[in-house]
Amino acid sequence: MAVDPTTEGLFVQRRFGAAPERLFEAWTDPEVAARWLFTGLVGDVEELAMDARPGGVFRLRGARHEGYGEFIEVDPPRRIVLAFGVPALRSGLDRFVVEIAPDPAGSLLSLTKEGLPPDLSDETEGDWRVMFDRLATIL
C-alpha cells in the first residue's frame, strides 16, 4: 500500500490478487461490502443497504455509528465515485474515488478521499489499511 503525501486529501493504492470484476463486486455487493467497508469507522456492520448506480443510496448501521451516502458515478469494473458521511463523527459527506485497473497479479486499486483535513490523514490511512487487509482476506 502506498500513500501519496502530495495529494490534497488521501491517496492510497494496493494490489489485490483478484480480478477487477471481483474487486468491483466487493465495493458494490452489500453482502460482501458489509464484511469490510467502513468497518473501522462504524464498528462491525449490522445493516447495509446500497443501490450501486448513479444517484443510488448507500446506508449502513454499525455497532458504533450510522453512515449514509450516494453513488455519484458507477463504471463497472473500473470506477466508483461515492459521497459518504458519518454524522456522529463529522458533518457533511466526504467524496471517495475508487479506480480499479487490471494488474499482472490481479488488480490495482486506487482510492482517493478528497478534501481530508491534514490532521486526519494518518488516522484515516490507518483505517483504510485495516479495511484493505480485511478485504484481501475476503477476496
Rank of each mutant, 00 (worst) to 15 (best):
D4W: 03
P5C: 04
T6K: 15
E8H: 12
L10V: 07
F11E: 08
V12P: 00
Q13R: 13
Q13T: 15
R14E: 05
A18K: 02
E21L: 04
E21P: 06
R22D: 13
E25W: 01
A26R: 00
A26L: 02
W27R: 03
E31Y: 03
V32M: 07
V32T: 11
A33S: 12
R35N: 11
F38H: 14
F38Q: 06
T39H: 08
G40W: 06
L41R: 15
G43V: 02
G43N: 08
V45M: 02
V45K: 05
L48V: 13
A52H: 08
P54I: 07
G56K: 08
F58L: 15
R59W: 09
R59Y: 09
L60N: 08
L60T: 07
E66H: 08
E66W: 08
G69F: 06
E70T: 15
E73K: 03
E73T: 10
P76V: 05
P76F: 04
P76G: 05
R78V: 05
V81P: 00
L82E: 00
L82R: 04
L82M: 09
F84W: 15
F84K: 05
P87H: 05
A88N: 00
R90N: 13
S91M: 02
L93T: 05
L93N: 09
D94C: 10
D94A: 15
R95I: 13
R95E: 14
F96T: 07
I100G: 01
A101I: 10
A101N: 03
P104F: 09
A105W: 01
G106P: 07
S107N: 00
L108I: 02
L109Y: 02
S110W: 00
K113V: 15
E114R: 12
E114M: 12
G115N: 08
L116S: 12
D119G: 08
S121E: 13
S121R: 15
D122Q: 11
E123S: 15
T124P: 10
E125Y: 10
G126Y: 07
D127M: 13
R129G: 00
M131C: 15
A136K: 02
T137F: 12
I138F: 04
L139P: 03
L139K: 01
